[in-house]
Design a protein around this nucleic acid. Structure first.
Lengths: 293, 293
DNA sequence: CCATGTACCTGACTTTAGTCAGGCAATGCC
DNA sequence: GGCATTGCCTGACTAAAGTCAGGTACATGG
């Protein structure tokens, strides 16, 4: 490996630890141990198993338990027995906890603003572009795409998130029952595939492809969690789905979507998809795309 | 400020804290408190006043004293009274201390290598380029250029470093006495200027410009400390020196240098300097550059 | 139903980090 | 020379971070 590359990276590491790391510590300093803030942050929006929290933060079981207790006493999180295993427990933020995280985000933004303030507009844009590249490439290691049974709990969870997001995004809401039906076995081999992307082991994106014999492949239920947008997860997923289609002999792939999903449409176009006329009459769609493989 | 820019930066901060920050902590974990490793690192190669160490690391006087004592007990640093002020003390690494730092660097490099290992060559190059941009722009805030008396201790220190580097770089060594003489007042207003660049308050680069009336401006003693190369310090210095020359009415600027100083030559050419014939007969030079302002 | 293992909790630690109030020697300034 | 100041050290703290050895309730596989 090129030693100049290593040198550049070491300097990057020093600078970033100094600038960004210090900032990170500062803004998390909110009258409670820093580790507690980090844990609150790491809990995220849904239910999290305590074991997974521990693993992600690298904490001792006893220590984690105490931190969690402290957050509970502050009224920022709730801990309940896991629905799937009564030994395990899951944590979730209370309303106050969510507000506190919003506040942490705000402080973090202030810090970012202060760092950017000394730069002119071009430099800010340059820094943001470089930061995006670094973020994307450093995250790569922790992203993995895997073939999943579309009925597995994690696949179901992703699809659920997807539906909820559509419901929130579309003016007229989203009714899965009104959509064209897709049976589970249409998204499992040999008739299709369903992929889940995990980031640090947590599911963050999903997508399915139907592979009807003699017809174009058809993409379904592409979803990327808001927390990982910008990391190139969508592109990675699309590549994997297209590869599955190609391997199955498909030469053409189609999908329906909605112009309200702007980021998704941009990505499809960027990846060579072109708009085509309605080919399936899906009621929630107002845009149809296709691409030759 | 564009909120998407802030969002990108926040994601960058999260990722980088996770990947790089964790790594940074890990590799410094060498059986002694992390703060001690950081201090050893921060001491650098020469003598450092303890007050300056404290300031850079943001430590309490008592705490700093204890950490230093611990490093002394380990045989990694020596502390001696300051030659200029018998109240103050200076710290320097022992041979063992230097070896320990080399080891820390090695571990840090291993970490960097592990991070880069998952990427192909193009991606590695892309990451390195982006890392360089981030490093340069984040460091900007802490770099300041100031006009200095060429006889001030810090200016002298920079020039000394410059001479030592030339001595080490040139096959035939460097003898200041054999070089064309430059009197201090030729590098001070109104006949010239001498600039020092500081990074986090420490001098890291210098450069002078002679402004003889009716003749082209002449750049002298451009030096950038190895530790900050790649941060764009040279370019910043060059810009400032050229601005001084322009303000003094010069329309043309010249300099002599040596092809052994490859990085410097590259920078001059990148900044629009073109090679010209020998115009001053400087014995240590084998290359002469000029540029219209 | 029992043996074994898992998930989390609790109490009792140690180490690291960081603060604060003096204290002593050297310095700078009348 | 006296006096405030500076630079560092020491002792005596507190809080945070992290570790370790049980303990309890539940899960799983025979």
């Amino acid at each position: 490996m090129d030693p100049r590359l290593i040198a550049a990276f070491r300097q990057f590491q020093r600078t970033v630890t100094r600038e960004v790391g210090a900032l990170h510590g500062d803004f998390l300093d909110r009258g409670r141990p820093l580790a507690a803030s980090r844990m609150l942050w790491e809990i995220g929006d849904g239910d999290v198993e305590i074991a997974s929290l521990r693993a992600r933060l690298g904490l001792d079981s006893g220590y984690a338990s105490r931190l969690l207790r402290a957050l509970e006493d502050e009224g920022l999180v709730e801990v309940a027995p896991s629905p799937t295993d009564a030994r395990a427990r899951v944590a979730r933020r209370t309303r106050a906890g969510c507000e506190e995280v919003v506040e942490l985000d705000r402080l973090s933004d202030d810090g970012a603003r202060a760092l950017l303030a000394g730069l002119d507009e071009n430099e800010q844009a340059e820094l943001a572009a470089a930061a995006r590249i670094v973020t994307r490439l450093l995250s790569r290691r922790h992203l993995e795409v895997s073939l999943e049974d579309p009925d597995s709990p994690e696949a179901q969870w992703c699809v659920q998130q997807y539906f909820e997001e559509l419901q929130a995004t579309f003016d007229a809401g989203y009714d899965p029952a009104a959509a064209l039906p897709t049976a589970s076995d249409e998204l499992a081999p040999p008739h299709g595939a369903f992929l889940v992307v995990r980031y640090h082991g947590q599911p963050v994106a999903c997508g399915g492809v139907k592979l009807p014999e003699g017809e174009p492949a058809f993409l379904k239920r592409m979803w990327v969690a808001p927390s990982v947008r910008g990391l190139g997860v969508g592109g990675m997923l699309l590549d994997s789905l297209e590869a599955r289609a190609r391997d199955a002999g498909a030469t053409f792939v189609r999908l329906d979507t909605n112009s309200a999903l702007e980021a998704a449409c941009r990505m499809y176009e960027h990846r060579g998809y072109v708009q085509v006329p309605d080919f399936n009459g899906e009621v929630h769609a107002n845009r149809w795309y296709a691409k030759s493989l």
